[in-house]
Amino acid sequence: MGRYIIRRLLQAVLTLFLALFLLHYLTTLSIQINGNPAYAFFGAQITPTPAQLQTVSELYHTDHPCLTQPGNPCFGNFFDTMKRYAEGDFGKDLRFRPVTELVAERVPNTLRIFAVSTTVWALAGIGLGMVAAMRREKFMDYFIRLGTIVFGAVPIFLVVLGLKYVAGVWFGGWLRENLGEENALSIIFLPSFDDQHPWLTILVPGVALSVIGAAGIARLMRTSMLENLRADFVRTAKAKGLKPGRVMLAHTLRNSLIPVITLIGLSFGGALGGAVITEGLWNVRGVGQLVFNAVRQNDTPIVIAVVTMLVITFLLFSLLVDLLYAVLDPRIRYE
C-alpha cells in the first residue's frame, strides 16, 4: 500500500505540474497571438498611453518580452507564475481585487451546493440503478433506463432554467401566495439564491446540478449490480439459506458500489463545469458564479485564475478517490 501511495503521489505531482504548464501555454499563446490583454482593462473606447499600458501590464504580469514572440513557451514566465501561485497570489481582477479574496468569500456557498448535489446524485443514482437491476427487463428497468438517457441528454442550463421557472416562479409563486413569504417551503422554492437562507435556497439548484452525475451513476450501478447478481458468491450466499435482504445488502450492493467510486472523480469534474452554469443562473454567490460573471464581463484574468484553482482542486480530489479505491479494491494496488 505504501508503495502505491508514493507512486500515485509522484504521478499526481507530475500531472499537476504539466497541467499547470498546459494552462500557462494556452494563455501565453493567446497573448502572443491576440495581443496584450491589458487593453481589456481600458475598454474599447480609451487608447492608453504607453506609460499607462506599462503600469497595467506589470500589474497583470503581461509585460514579459517573450509574450510578443509567438510559439515561445515562456518557461521563465511559467516559473514566475508558479512562484506566485505557491505564495498564494493568483492575480487580480480588472478592479484590482485579489482573486484569492474573491474566491475565499465564495467557497462556503459552493461547498453547500456540492453537499446538496452530491447527496442527491449519490442517493438517486445508486437507488435508481439498484431498482433497475432488481427489476431487470421489467417496466421499472426500461423506465429508469429511458429516464437516465433522456435526462443525460438535457444540457444543464436547460435543467436549471426549467427548474427556475417551474419550481421557482410558478410553483414557488403559488406557495408564496398561499403559505406566506416566510414559510420554509416558500423560501425553498424561491427562484434565486438568498443570502439570508443559504441552506434552504440552495436545495433546488443543488438538485439541478445533481442531474449531471445521477444518470451516469444509475447506469453504472445497474450494470455492476447485474454482474454481481450473477456472481458465484451471491449464488453461494443464497444457497446457504441467507435471507434475500441480507444477500442483497451485504453481498450484492456492497460489492457493486466499488466501481461506482471511480465515477465519483469524473462526475466531480463535470459538476465543476455544471456549477458555473447553475450558480450563474441561480445567482448563488459561489466560485462558479465568479467564472460565469467573469466570462460575461470579459474578465479573463479571473477566468484563468479560478479555472487554475479548480483544476488543482479537481486533481487533489481525483487523488483522494484513487487512494480510496485502492483501499477498497486490493487488486488495484498490486497491479
Binding site: 498546459l22 494556452l26 469534474g269 463535470g270 455544471g274 483544476v311
Partner: peptide, 12 residues
C-alpha cells in the same frame, strides 16, 4: 488533459 475538466477547459 484529463486533469482539466472538459467544460471548464473549453470555457477557459
Amino acid at each position: 488533459f484529463n486533469a482539466i475538466p472538459f467544460v471548464l477547459g473549453a470555457i477557459l
